[in-house]
Design a protein around this nucleic acid. Structure first.
Length: 466
RNA sequence: GGCGUCAUAGCCAAGCGGUAAGGCAAGGGUCUGCAAAACCCUGAUUCCCCAGUUCAAAUCUGGGUGGCGCCUCCA
C-alpha cells in the first residue's frame, strides 16, 4: 500500500520501521472549547487509517494527545472561574462523549500534557545540555532554531524566509525571533509546575515530542494532524525530536485537509466553527461520515448547505435496499454471506493512500446490482449485502440496523404535516376519486406552493415535505 | 514579500504515463388521468493557458494565470 508523505511530497510504498508493527501518532485537540466538525473529521481520518492498517495485518499502536494546558485554557479558566485543570477535564469528557456519538473509536493511548510534565522537563533539560535550547532570564526556555540545520524541511522554508515574515517584534528574551518557547514561566495565579527554571508550564510543541518519546521511543512510523499544523507545530516537533536523538522522528508525515464553510475557512479566529454536537442533532453520524469521506482526506472540504442532506439521502437509499434484501431473504442471510470481489475492490481503493472517496463511489453500482438481484429473487444479493456491511463498516457506515437507521433519520427530520395540508390533500384525493382532474390538480398546485408534494399510491397517498 | 497547495462537464468529485469513474442537477423515455417517486437512456474529442520530454501526458518538466491556505491560536 502507498501513503502520501508530506515530508517528501509524494506517495510512497508503506514499509514500517519494524516488520508487522506500526507506531502511529496524531495530534489531537487543545481542549479550550467544544469539538467542531474539523476535529471530528481529523479523528475520523486517523481512526480509519488505523483500522485499515490493522486490516492489512499490522499490529498498530495508535496514540492521540489532548493538550490540556495552554494560554486559551488559562484564559477560559479566568473567564469562568473554574480552575484550569478542572475546565480541561470537563472539556475532555465533553469531547469524548461527542466523539462517541460520532462513532469514532478511541486510540490505544491517550496522551495528556499534564500527565507528562516530568517527561517534558527531562526532554527540555537534555536539549539544553546538547546546546539546542537555552533558558531566558524570566524563566522561559527557548529552542535555538539555528542549532538545527534542517529546520524548515517539512514546510520547505528557510530560517531567513521566516524571519522576513515575522510579524511580532522580537522580545528581548529570545536570541532569534525564530526561536520558540519550550517552557513558559508562570504568571501570578496561573496553573504551574516546578522545574529547574522555576514555576511554569510546557509550550505546545514540546508536548508532542516528549510524549511521543515516552510512549514510542525515538522513532515512529506515521505522524498525522491537520494541514494547518505543518508550520510551525510539526516543524518544531521535528526540530526538537531530531536534534535530541539524531534520528529521523517520523517516517511518514500525513496531513488531512481542512474544513471550509461556504468557501470560507473554519477557524477559531473567525468564530464560524460548526460544532459536531449540533450537526449530530440534524444528521446521522453515518451521513456526516459519508459526506466527509467523499473527498480525498488530503484536500479541503467545503461544507455547503446540501452536502449533508445529500449524503443522508444516499444512505437512506442504500439502507432501503438493505432492508428490502432483509425482508426478502431474511436478516441472518444478509449478515452471514461473503463476496470477496467486493472486499478486494475496496482494499484496492484503500491501498492507494486511503482512497475512501473511490471506495464510496463503488457503492452506487453495488447497490444498483443488489436491487436488481432482489427483483429477480437472486439470493446472492444477501451475500452482497452482508459483504458490503462488513467491508464498509471500516469507514463507519452500514453499522446500524436498517430499520432502525431509517427510523432514526425520520426522527431527525420530523415530517409534521400541518392539519391544513392534510385537509387539502384529502380534498384532492376525493376530487381525484371523482375524476375531477381540474380540481385535483388545482389543489395539488396549492399544496405544492405551501412546500409539500403529494405522492399517489394505488389506494392511498402520502404527503412529503419538500 | 516568502512558502505551500489546488485548478477535471452547470455543480461536487475520482484519476498518480496508456487513451476521461461516480454523484447531484438537466434533457429524453417507461409508468401515471396528469404528476411525484422509481427504473432505463443521454453528457467532457477533452482535463486553466503556453512550451517541452515521450511511441503515448489530465497525469512528468519549465514558464505563466487564477483560487485557497500558512508565515499569530487552530484538526
Amino acid at each position: 500500500m502507498r501513503i502520501y508523505n508530506s515530508l517528501t511530497r509524494r506517495k510512497e510504498e508503506f514499509t514500517p520501521l519494524e516488520k508487522g508493527k506500526v507506531k502511529m501518532y496524531a495530534c489531537g485537540i487543545t481542549v479550550s472549547g467544544e469539538a467542531h466538525i474539523g476535529h471530528g473529521y481529523q479523528a475520523l481520518i486517523y481512526d480509519i487509517m488505523r483500522k485499515y492498517l490493522e486490516k492489512k495485518g499490522y499490529s498498530v499502536t495508535y496514540a492521540r494527545n489532548y493538550t490540556d494546558v495552554d494560554d486559551k485554557i488559562i484564559a477560559k479558566s479566568k473567564e469562568t472561574g473554574i480552575p484550569a485543570e478542572k475546565y480541561a477535564a470537563q472539556m475532555i469528557e465533553n469531547i469524548n462523549a461527542v466523539m462517541k456519538e460520532f462513532d469514532v473509536d478511541e486510540p490505544a493511548l491517550w496522551l495528556k500534557a499534564t500527565e507528562n510534565i516530568q517527561n517534558i522537563i527531562d526532554f527540555i533539560s537534555e536539549l539544553i545540555k546538547k546546546g539546542h535550547a537555552y533558558p531566558a532570564a524570566n524563566g522561559d526556555v527557548y529552542f535555538n532554531v539555528s542549532s538545527f540545520k534542517r529546520y524548515g524541511c517539512l514546510s520547505n522554508r528557510s530560517v531567513e524566509d521566516m524571519l522576513d515574515g515575522v510579524r511580532v517584534e522580537n522580545d528581548e528574551l529570545k536570541k532569534s525571533p525564530a526561536d520558540f518557547a519550550l517552557w513558559k514561566a508562570a504568571k501570578e495565579g496561573e496553573i504551574c509546575w516546578n522545574s529547574p527554571w522555576g514555576k511554569g508550564r510546557p509550550g505546545w510543541h514540546i508536548e508532542c515530542s516528549a510524549m511521543n518519546r515516552a510512549a514510542f521511543g525515538d522513532q515512529i512510523d506515521i505522524h498525522g494532524g491537520g494541514r494547518d499544523l505543518i508550520f510551525p507545530h510539526h516543524e518544531n516537533e521535528i526540530a526538537q525530536s531530531e536534534s535530541l536523538t539524531g534520528k529521523q522522528f517520523a517516517k511518514y508525515w500525513t496531513h488531512n485537509g481542512l474544513i471550509k464553510v461556504n468557501g470560507q475557512k473554519m477557524s477559531k479566529s473567525l468564530g464560524n466553527s460548526l460544532l459536531l454536537s449540533d450537526l449530530l442533532k440534524k444528521y446521522s453520524n453515518e451521513a456526516i461520515k459519508f459526506a466527509l469521506l467523499q473527498n480525498n482526506y488530503r484536500g479541503d472540504i467545503n461544507i455547503t448547505d446540501n452536502l449533508f442532506p445529500e449524503a443522508e439521502k444516499h444512505l437512506t437509499d442504500f439502507y432501503s435496499v438493505i432492508k428490502a434484501a432483509e425482508d426478502k431473504f431474511g436478516k441472518s442471510a444478509c449478515a452471514n454471506g461473503e463476496n470477496e470481489r467486493i472486499d478486494d475492490k475496496f482494499n484496492a481503493c484503500m491501498d492507494e493512500d486511503f482512497n475512501a472517496a473511490l471506495a464510496l463511489s463503488e457503492l452506487f453500482s453495488l447497490f444498483k446490482s443488489v436491487s436488481a438481484k432482489i427483483q429477480k429473487g437472486d439470493k446472492t444479493a444477501a451475500d452482497d449485502v452482508s459483504q458490503i456491511r462488513k467491508t464498509y463498516a471500516l469507514l463507519g457506515i452500514f453499522k446500524k440496523d436498517a430499520e432502525e437507521y431509517l427510523k432514526e433519520v425520520a426522527a431527525k427530520n420530523p415530517a409534521e404535516i400541518p392539519a391544513e395540508i392534510e385537509e387539502l390533500a384529502k380534498a384532492r384525493w376525493q376530487a381525484k376519486q371523482n375524476k375531477n382532474w381540474a380540481q385535483a390538480d388545482s389543489l395539488r398546485t396549492q399544496i405544492d406552493a405551501m412546500g409539500y408534494t403529494i405522492k399517489d399510491g394505488k389506494d392511498s397517498f402520502t404527503i412529503i415535505k419538500k
